[in-house]
Design a protein around this nucleic acid. Structure first.
Length: 482
DNA sequence: TTTTGAGTTGTTCGA
DNA sequence: GTCGAACAACTCAAA
């Protein structure tokens, strides 16, 4: 009798509780990945995520083969595919690690019921979170809506300990059922091949994730507090896509950085480590919010925001998407995203704020673009963060906090390294003009080889005017609430 | 029970 | 140049 091991967003062998339990069961294990686009609907992985998924599945299959096993690929609804495999192999148990997207939660109950009714053992586990979202409660028993108290509560409980290392051998079934060919899923672009910048930047798969974590925990995490805000340097962990696909789990991250800090400083959470762990906690908080508010991706947590008079300009949206707003820090961020599938967190806030507050475009439109273009696109984090910037989510930014793209650029990219890398056409400008090219005198522009309106756009909106417009709109909403 | 203080990521204005 | 104040409303927990 075989155990079906159903992979979905937990593409690793270490710290994988479903795999560990299947091994304890002592029967042959049949690993399967199901491409369930139809069930996910509009929340099927976007283009950048599909590129990553291809690489991650290749790596997982190789890791399984190295242990005498394999990875079967199938396409369709989870329930139908699992039923097929049970019929083909006579498997009598299905183990998997949980997911938290509302559509995934919705299918779990009927799936478990159907399996159990046929006498199949169905068990699910936690691989993706430090703590399950329903285990953290306020003193009155409800879910949290503010980060800091949530973080205090999480820290008081602490992270679960990570599971075991990857097993050395995985017992194979007597025969392998048929598998789809990964290439036939066409997850990677062919023509045009927009992913060349991705390949330079990333190594999908568990080994790549562990290498990234080890390097970060050994050094960068100790300088994290200040350097995490500078997009021009490599000061962040860049673990987000690995975490999203479960190539590494937050428990492993937590354990690795605290253990390394203990070795290097004698303190499990010196300042940089503590700030980094709070970022891991933001991820947990996003999952907490999504679990308790399933409409988080589509509806403002504060309903009065639905009255916001959003603009629907297609041209403005295209300019933002393509990095042609005329604000260098915004354009740099949007081009980094397009080229590498990732954007520095500081710049995510700046570009998101610009779309929502300067262009008055609905946060959901920006969220959809990030969903398609980010390799780390994650329903919980993406939705919660866009709502946060828009001011309509939990722990909302004050309505009057409207990022000034010039000040932000001068503050966090003062040497211009980031803007010059991604907006090379204005690289010749001196630092004090780089973040506001329109303030340069004609001879300064000439000297830098910049012709505004031709080689680089003029700002598409005036900051002060846009700010006033946004403040007025938020004011209207406030009145509507009374 | 009620009150009070504090809360990831900011900007502008006036002194 | 630097500095503090002002800019809502709401959530959570401690007093």
């Amino acid at each position: 009798m075989t155990t079906l091991l159903w992979f979905s967003r937990d593409l690793r062998l270490a710290d994988n509780p479903a795999l560990a339990a299947a091994i304890v069961r002592g029967r042959p294990i049949l690993p399967v990945f199901i491409l369930d686009d139809e069930e996910a609907g509009e929340r099927a992985p976007g283009g950048a995520s599909r590129w990553w998924l291809h690489g991650s599945l290749e790596a997982l299959r190789a890791d399984l083969k190295a242990r005498g096993s394999n990875l079967i690929l199938r396409r369709g609804s989870a329930q139908a595919v699992l039923a097929e495999l049970i019929a083909e192999t006579g498997a009598d148990a299905v183990y998997w690690n949980r997911r938290y997207e509302p559509w995934a939660i919705a299918r779990t109950e009927p799936l478990k019921a159907a399996l159990t009714a046929r006498g199949i053992e169905a068990r699910s586990f936690n691989a993706a979170l430090l703590r399950e979202p329903w285990t953290i409660k306020t003193q009155t028993g409800g879910p949290y809506r503010v980060f800091t108290p949530f973080w205090r509560a999480l820290r008081a409980i602490g992270a679960e300990a990570p599971g075991l290392h990857a097993p050395e051998r995985i017992i194979a079934p007597e025969a392998w059922p048929q598998s789809d060919r990964l290439e036939d899923w066409a997850l990677q672009p062919s023509s045009p091949d927009w992913a060349s910048g991705f390949r330079e930047q990333w190594t999908p798969g568990e080994a790549g994730a562990q290498a990234r974590l080890a390097a970060f925990a050994a050094e960068q995490v100790f300088d994290y507090t200040g350097k995490r805000n500078l997009p021009g340097i490599d000061g962040t962990s860049r673990l987000s896509p690995h975490l999203h696909f479960g190539e590494i789990g937050p428990r492993q991250v937590w354990a690795a950085v605290t253990a390394e800090a203990m070795v290097q400083t004698g303190d499990p959470s010196p300042e940089g480590v503590d700030v980094f762990l709070s970022e891991i906690a933001w991820r947990e908080f996003s999952y907490h919010l999504l679990f308790h508010n399933p409409t988080l991706p589509s509806q403002a947590l504060h309903p009065e925001f639905e009255a916001m008079p959003w603009s629907h300009g297609r041209k403005a949206l295209r300019a933002w998407q393509q990095g042609r707003t005329g604000y260098p820090i915004v354009d740099a961020g949007m081009r980094e995203l397009w080229t590498t599938g990732w954007m520095h967190n500081r710049v995510r806030m700046i570009t998101a704020s610009f779309l929502i507050k300067h262009l008055m475009i609905d946060w959901r439109v920006g969220e959809a673009w990030f969903w398609d273009t980010l390799v780390d696109a994650d329903l919980a984090s993406n939705s919660a963060s866009w709502q946060w910037v828009a001011g309509c989510g939990a722990d909302a930014a004050p309505y009057f906090r409207i990022f000034n793209p010039v000040l932000q650029g001068e503050k966090f990219d003062s040497d211009g390294a980031y803007v010059r890398r991604w907006v090379p056409e204005i690289a010749g400008l001196p630092n004090k003009l780089l973040h506001a090219p329109w303030t340069a005198k004609p001879h300064e522009l000439r000297a830098a080889g910049v012709e505004l309106g031709r080689t680089y756009p003029r700002p598409m909106v005036d900051h002060a005017a846009a700010r006033q417009r946004a403040l007025a709109a938020y004011d209207e909403i406030k009145k509507g609430r009374d």
